[in-house]
Design a protein around this nucleic acid. Structure first.
Length: 395
DNA sequence: TAGGCCATCTGGTCCT
DNA sequence: AGGACCAGATGGCCTA
């Protein structure tokens, strides 16, 4: 109520002036300001509502005399209609000093409190799916994402099933802003454009109304952005993944089941790690492991056990189930250079799609070990793309 | 330049 | 009484 009155009557500046007089302010100045402030405050404040009115306990010596004076005044005013507002009280230098010290202490406490809150938020940022030291999620987005993440994990525990990746990302992104949605999608190597625009149609087809990860109506449609914006956003996200150690979550939940992934390179748990006891373990900032995590979808999508769900996400339109374009899944450098050549990617993806998982990884390994010596029947440029891709996979 | 985000200050309220 | 918590106000910084 008082706050509303403050807002409506624009008294805040005067009140703040009242509460923040300069140190060197003498009593004459104080009395002047006092009058101004009281005039305003009396219009809105009820008795004893100002903190200054609460200071009686601190008052001693000369302040006692003031109190007596004021009591006398009050008696004299008893016959008149009682004025609302704080008691008229002189701001002596001593009282002002005490008030100032109290205010400074309160400010320091409030600062510390907010710092604690912020550090807690930082910790929260580290355990939600997308984390970067350099590009922090805002407070509100962190909380929203955390809520969605908890919800997603709860659904996974409840259903005991491995959810669809797209639906999983959609759940995470529910209610998030477009930039954060792009970021989360980027973390999972999906382009938000696809799972946002398909939400209405594809959801029912693949998940059904009773699905644990039923699609949500999203406020943010990528159509609000131009195509180039979408793409650049996605690319930037992917790039950010690589540069800043963004971490995806999905694989951390389901582990790595592929026999092709026995290499220690893939042993590191992806962030945020979900501990056996259900608690999260905080990720270490800028750990080398984090840098390995960005290419999660490559791991995931190539797993034999996950081919039905994730393989198509990797291999583009020929294996497409949900309309995710192959270009969205290519590494940043490829997209950056060749983003306008989707047909080539599709052909390339089709080629890779025909390979068995073993052959695919063998090919990738070959690319990695003999980079530069591979002859690609489809041409030099295609070979560059493929090699980049393979290098990315094995990075 | 507008809008978003943030840190800080501030006064009010509630609790111990 | 003092501290914690809260919400409003304000100004700075950054970005599209």
């Amino acid at each position: 109520m008082l706050t509303r009155l403050f807002s409506e009557t624009s008294l805040i500046p005067e009140v703040q002036k009242f509460a923040s007089w300069p140190d060197d302010c003498d009593e004459e100045d104080l009395s002047d300001k006092d009058e101004t402030s009281e005039k305003s405050l009396q219009e809105v404040h009820t008795e004893g509502s100002l903190s200054e009115s609460k200071d009686d306990g601190d008052i001693g010596g000369e302040d006692d005399e003031e109190e007596e004076e004021e009591e006398g005044t009050e008696e004299a005013e008893g016959e008149r209609p009682k004025k609302r507002g704080p008691k008229k009280r002189k701001m002596t230098k001593a009282r002002m000093e005490r008030s100032k010290v109290r205010r400074q202490k309160a400010n320091a406490r409030e600062r510390n409190r907010m710092h604690d809150l912020n550090s807690a938020l930082d910790n929260l940022r580290k355990v939600v799916p997308c984390y970067s030291k350099t590009q922090k999620l805002s407070k509100i987005e962190t909380l929203r994402l955390a809520k969605n993440y908890i919800w997603a994990l709860s659904e996974i525990l409840r259903s005991g099933k491995r959810p669809d990746l797209v639906a999983y990302v959609q759940t995470l992104c529910k209610g998030l802003s477009q930039p954060t949605t792009n970021l989360v999608a980027g973390c999972l190597q999906l382009n938000s454009r696809n799972f946002l625009t398909e939400q209405g149609q594809e959801a029912g087809r693949y998940h059904g109304p009773n699905s644990s990860f039923a699609m949500h109506p999203y406020t943010y449609q990528c159509s609000r952005l131009s195509g180039s914006q979408c793409q650049s956003s996605s690319m930037a996200n992917t790039h950010a993944l690589r540069s800043h150690g963004y971490c995806a979550t999905y694989e951390s939940l389901y582990g790595n089941t592929s026999p092709d992934y026995n290499s220690s390179e893939y042993d590191a748990p992806l962030s945020p790690p979900l501990c056996v006891n259900g608690n999260f373990a905080l990720k270490q900032d800028s750990s080398p492991d984090n840098d390995k995590n960005y290419h999660y979808s490559m791991h995931y999508s190539a797993l034999p056990s996950s081919r039905a769900a994730g393989h198509s996400l990797l291999f583009g339109s020929s294996g497409m189930r949900s309309g995710v374009h192959s270009e969205n899944l290519l590494p940043y450098d490829i997209m950056h250079v060749h983003h306008d050549r989707a047909p080539m990617y599709e052909e390339l993806n089709a080629f890779f799609h025909k390979l068995s998982p073993q052959l695919f990884f063998s090919t990738c390994a070959m690319c990695a070990t003999k980079y530069g010596n591979i002859e690609w029947k489809t041409g030099e440029e295609r070979g560059l793309v493929a090699r980049s891709w393979c290098r990315h996979v094995l990075q």
